[in-house]
Amino acid sequence: MIDPNWTSLLPPVLAIVLAIWTKQVYLSLAGGLWLAWTMLSEWNPLSGIAASIQGAVDVLGSDAQVILFTLVIGALIATVEASGGVRGFVRFLERNKWVDSAKKSQLLAWATGMVIFIESNITVLVAGSVARPLFDRYKSSREKLAYIIDSTSAPICILIPMNAWGAYNLGILEGLGVENALMVYNYWQIGFRVVFGQRF
């Protein structure tokens, strides 16, 4: 721990200077936060990073994990977009005539939302980054894209018990005393029982 002196002004000064220089408020605040925790960690920059992240998690509570997860996935998708991966995928789809009209671009957005059911945030980010250039090219509205993605992200994810939504809902069902909650929740199992009888 350091005694309060003139160095306690360094983190806010750094945040203000970074904000003016980069025009990035969040990055500047993170820089000021990092410097403050680095100072409290006896000027160890690595401990400052760890303490900054832990401090943010402590302040944000349980929402911090969701926010950090979304930031990491968003950064990954932004990297793929910046490296030309999305552009190459769109060219591949158009070259093979899989997407050559507005209706097919809408179908692609819908199919992406149906297939990527790992987590609803991932579905939104991936489907949006893949379908947005196609929607722009074929003059479909972005509002329609937003509707299609929103209609297929969380609603599909909540039906699949193999992700966070499924685990959460199973926990709620078991907390309510529902016996064999997985069977009740698993709509696929119910479908098999209807089609193939009780032996499944």
Results as ranks from 00 to 15, higher is better:
D3T: 15
S8L: 14
L9I: 13
P11T: 06
P12I: 04
V13Y: 02
V13T: 11
L18G: 05
Q24H: 15
Q24R: 15
L29N: 03
L33Y: 09
W37N: 12
W37E: 09
W37T: 13
T38K: 01
T38Y: 02
T38Q: 02
L46R: 03
S47N: 14
G48P: 03
A50C: 10
A51F: 10
Q54I: 12
S62N: 13
S62H: 11
I67T: 08
I67S: 03
L68I: 11
T70Q: 10
G74W: 03
A78V: 10
T79E: 11
E81T: 12
A82K: 15
V86W: 02
G88L: 06
R91P: 04
E94H: 04
K97F: 12
W98T: 13
V99G: 01
D100Y: 09
S101N: 05
K103F: 12
A109P: 01
W110M: 14
W110C: 08
G113K: 00
M114D: 00
V115Q: 01
F117Y: 10
I118F: 08
S120C: 14
L125K: 01
V126P: 02
A127C: 09
G128F: 07
V130D: 01
R132D: 11
R137A: 13
Y138P: 02
Y138H: 08
S140I: 02
S141T: 14
R142P: 07
E143C: 09
Y147P: 04
I148F: 06
I148E: 03
T152Y: 01
T152P: 00
S153F: 06
A154V: 11
A154Q: 06
A154G: 02
I156V: 15
I160L: 09
P161T: 04
P161C: 04
Y168C: 12
N169C: 12
L173P: 01
E174R: 08
E174V: 08
G175K: 08
L176H: 11
L176S: 10
E179Q: 13
L182W: 09
M183F: 12
W188I: 14
G191N: 09
F196N: 11
F196A: 10
F196L: 15
R199E: 14
R199L: 12
